[in-house]
């Protein structure tokens, strides 16, 4: 035998599809349809802001890892790219670039690297960045361009347009009659993405396409997105049945705002979601319920970000008490 030998413990094979970089790459691919639709509707600035946000995240990650934390560089795992994209998707189109940079710094610097980097952050970095910006710069963060015309035209209005959620909020408060809100919301255009909102959240169909890709690649399981949206639908439906003049039909809730973006891409973040299926379901119900509570009763029109961050904080607790179903578990008499 002339060959040198390697020795290791079993197993001697590894699933080639399971690597951190590959899974992150698949998330990026899944976000592409939404990015394309958004650029078609809002124009090139979408791409520019997204790239800028990704670049900022990569830069901050590299800088902090190299000069403050030490250790091996972690840019190649792609998690900073995902964070950057998701952060951009959560911002309105006309946001100044320096605010994007601040958001990226908070996302990577505060929410992720302070805790030790990938795998150790308790909260979703992109959402922390977004919420920070929302609280710090409320006007810039809630000024959305009005979308008019067809997809092909792609014209955007410089004037600020009320998002569907803001209109729904007005109806719930009784400022605007429900009939008028309904007349301005068309289900079809909501689905396709012709509505005002953050860059990435406007097209439901593009986001669902990405969801299908993630499921096909087995990057995520269906439980969290479906249960989040299902919970929102049920709560919205009950509210609508009880008071149709204040609360809109539940499908509008799912198609508007960051519901799908949040449920599919943010709530499913590995690091900040529970390990087990049972735990995931509890976590997802929590997100759905809190989102609807904020949307219907809270001060903000949208509550997805807050709901996910709140439930993120429960994940360690869920993981401690919701254990996987064990093979051959027997009820042991505690001695």
């Amino acid at each position: 035998m002339k060959n040198k030998l390697i020795v290791s413990l079993a197993p001697h094979l590894h699933n080639p599809n399971n690597t951190t970089a590959k899974m992150m790459f698949n998330v990026v691919i899944a976000l592409m349809p939404a990015l394309i639709v958004s650029s078609m509707i809002y124009g090139w600035r979408v791409l520019f802001v997204s790239l800028f946000s990704v670049a900022c995240c990569l830069l901050f990650e590299w800088f902090i890892k190299k000069y403050m934390l030490g250790g091996k560089p972690t840019l190649c795992d792609g998690s900073a790219v995902v964070t950057g994209l998701l952060l951009a998707f959560n911002l309105p189109l006309n946001i100044p670039l320096w605010m994007v940079a601040v958001g990226a710094l908070v996302a990577i610097g505060v929410a992720k690297m302070t805790f030790g980097g990938l795998g150790k952050n308790p909260f979703n970095p992109a959402l922390v960045g977004r919420v920070f910006l929302l609280v710090a710069f409320p006007v810039a963060m809630t000024t959305f361009p009005e979308v008019t015309g067809a997809v092909a035209g792609g014209t955007t209005d410089a004037l600020s347009g009320a998002t569907p959620l803001a209109m729904m909020k007005m109806a719930a408060k009784g400022d605007v009659p429900m009939t008028e809100v309904l007349s301005r919301l068309e289900m079809q255009s909501l689905f396709m993405g012709i509505k005002s909102g953050s860059m990435g959240e406007i097209s439901a169909i593009a986001l669902l396409l990405g969801f299908a890709w993630l499921l096909y690649k087995r990057v995520i399981k269906w439980h969290i997105p479906v249960v989040v949206l299902g919970t929102m639908f049920v709560i919205g439906g009950v509210a609508h049945l009880l008071a149709p003049e204040s609360f809109i039909q539940p499908l509008y809730h799912i198609l508007t705002g960051g519901a799908i973006l949040g449920a599919v891409y943010m709530a499913t973040d590995y690091v900040t979601s529970p390990m087990t299926v049972k735990g995931s379901v509890i976590y997802a119900i929590g997100i759905g319920a809190i989102t609807m509570a904020i949307r219907m009763k809270g001060a903000y029109p949208e509550g997805m970000s807050f709901a996910i961050l709140i439930m993120n904080s429960f994940v360690p607790l869920i993981d401690k008490y919701i254990l996987p179903k064990r093979f051959g578990a027997v009820k042991e008499a505690k001695k």
């Binding site: 040198k4 030998l5 390697i6 020795v7 290791s8 413990l9």
Partner: peptide, 21 residues
């Protein structure tokens, strides 16, 4: 060295497996 160990860097793990590198 007569072979290369590819796994957890721990003497206890190696000792439980085999003679060593």
């Amino acid at each position: 060295k007569t072979n290369t160990f590819d796994g957890a860097k721990s003497c206890a793990v190696i000792a439980a497996l085999y003679a060593g590198e």
